[in-house]
């Protein structure tokens, strides 16, 4: 039996169902609308597991599910060495969003990472603490800024309404996902010219096959044939 993890609610679930449906595999919720149980038609030996998109990377890496649909940003954020622990089978073409760095529009002098770095240095000298960047993507943001040699900042955790943190003076800049940039603009923010950290989309991943049985490996091949990936 191959366990396939799919986001348990919302648009991401519906779009995932559509994506599989168009390729001849029907996924559906079974039981009542509120129940997190599912069924798979069109191929034998695949079991549907509904769970939160945020938990998918961990469950894949732990081997509790064999396949899973989640954002490529979440896998990179939550798994160190992600590409040695899971593999991308297919980008699915929806759920697109960019993880970006944004600063106040009022910072007319800051448009690049180079500007941000210089501003971090001056800010620390003036205010006595490191410039705060609010985000929930701690690892991705830190690795990106380290790679680009930005120093003297600090990450502050923000699990929601991140665009409001600058106005509320709990952060000076943010790193968040955006699809149109509308919310950013409405909150007086702008994206840095070279501030794209990761272009994310919903992606079908598989876990590490080390502990898989031959039957499970064959089943994956069969599923890939059906899906045409």
């Amino acid at each position: 039996m191959l366990k396939l993890g799919v986001p348990s609610k919302g648009r991401l679930m519906e779009k995932t169902f559509d994506w599989f449906g168009q390729r001849g595999v029907t996924l559906r919720k079974s039981g009542s609308d509120r129940e997190y149980a599912g069924a798979v038609d069109g191929i034998d030996g695949v079991e549907l597991v509904l769970l939160s998109a945020g938990e998918m990377p961990r469950e894949l890496a732990a081997g509790n599910i064999h396949l899973g649909v989640t954002g490529s940003d979440l896998v990179r954020e939550k798994l160190a060495n992600w590409d040695s622990r899971v593999a991308e089978l297919a980008p699915m073409g929806f759920g697109g969003a960019d993880l970006i760095i944004a600063v106040p529009q009022a910072w007319v002098d800051v448009n690049t990472l180079d500007d941000l770095d210089a501003t971090c240095a001056a800010f620390r000298g003036r205010h006595g603490f490191r410039l705060r960047i609010a985000t929930k993507y701690h690892r991705l943001v830190r690795e990106f800024l380290r790679e680009h040699g930005v120093a003297d900042y600090q990450i502050v955790d923000s699990q929601g309404a991140t665009e409001g943190t600058v106005k509320n003076e709990t952060a000076e800049a943010i790193a968040d996902i955006t699809s149109t940039g509308e919310t950013l603009r409405a909150n007086g923010l702008k994206i840095l010219d070279d501030g794209l950290i990761h272009a994310s989309q919903a992606t079908l991943f598989r876990g590490r096959r080390k502990d898989w049985s031959d039957a499970q490996r064959k089943k994956l091949k069969a599923l890939q044939m059906v899906l045409g990936i």
């Binding site: 529009q105 002098d109 003036r126």
Partner: peptide
């Protein structure tokens, strides 16, 4: 330079922005 600056939000003041423009 401030023509399209948008609202002044956050701790970093206009004076700090101006100081950096002068430095540039």
């Amino acid at each position: 330079p401030f023509a399209e600056a948008g609202p002044e939000i956050g701790l970093r003041s206009r004076a700090e922005v101006q100081a950096r423009i002068d430095a540039l």
